[in-house]
Amino acid sequence: MNLPSRKQLSPMRDFIVSRGVSGAVSLLLVTFLVFVGTALLPGDTASALLGQNATPEALAALRRDLGLDQPLLLRYLGWFAHAVRGDFGTSLASGRAVSEVLLPRLGNSLLLASVAAVFLLPVAVGGGIAAAIWQDSWFDRLLGFTSMLFLAMPAFLVGYILIYVFAVRMGWFPSMSVAPFFGGAAAWINILALPVISLVIIGQAHTMKLTRTAILAVLATDYVLMAEVKGISRRRIILRHALPNALSAILSISILTVAYLIVDVVVIEMVFSYPGLGKLMVDSVSYRDLTVVQACGLLFALIFIGMNFLADFLALLVNPRQREPARGA
């Protein structure tokens, strides 16, 4: 075996550099769009805070205090200069540091998303693999039907149906995940149950279909046929010949599923009034709390881009074509 040379490592390095740069550009664009988008909404923080009692003088004074009298671009650049140093400013609405407002909410959202992922991924990936192996069986058809059904249903509708059935009719779970939390694990399960079930139902369809397709594509290849002709057992064909080749696809699908979960979380948090990042962002938009919205937008984009990067990076790692140079020594 020859030692890994510079040439061998370079596809990986090229990948990291190019994706790093494009990721940074995407982040920059997202923050700018969120900034402009929030500024375009009628009204601003000052009018939202003062409400109907606002006098023009009070508004002007508050705007001066909050720095809202500056031109938009200048405000963005000011925000940006601070943000790159890790300072996201203070919440315009509450006056507290943005990070102080954000971090507990981020924790709640990550908890919700990760609990959902723990249930969703094995169900969806396992279901997808099983559906592919028993293609066209009643099991495959049933999964295909239910996943189409849930794929076609908006996220909030799933949430409201669950609330109606399990909270209103059965009374098993609370319809709202109201803070503050206390009462230990049991209380957590009680609060998380319905949002997690909603997220699993919404997310599984997409993931299961993609996994099924990925496995079917591999099962239709010539090398799987070759293994069959060689007399390899069905079990070994699936475990040793097919799955490793579908691994990169399944990894990408799983990680993208988690990324989509983060998006679904916003809607589900609103439906269940769950005190997470998504609800914070939506509430902050109604207060025109630009700094908080901006930080939330940045966090969501960061998670999404990071997940995409991770997905592609892992896909690269498990693919011998990418790992090994085309022609060996």
Binding site: D222, M226, G231, I232, R234, P320
Partner: peptide
């Protein structure tokens, strides 16, 4: 049976496919 058939394939016969590039597992 399927098991007997697999054994015959493993022991008695081999197959050389048209496209070797597709018939080898890339992994």
């Amino acid at each position: 049976s399927q098991l007997q058939l697999e054994q015959v394939r493993r022991r008695k016969v081999s197959y050389v496919a048209q496209s070797a590039a597709a018939a080898f597992n890339p992994f």
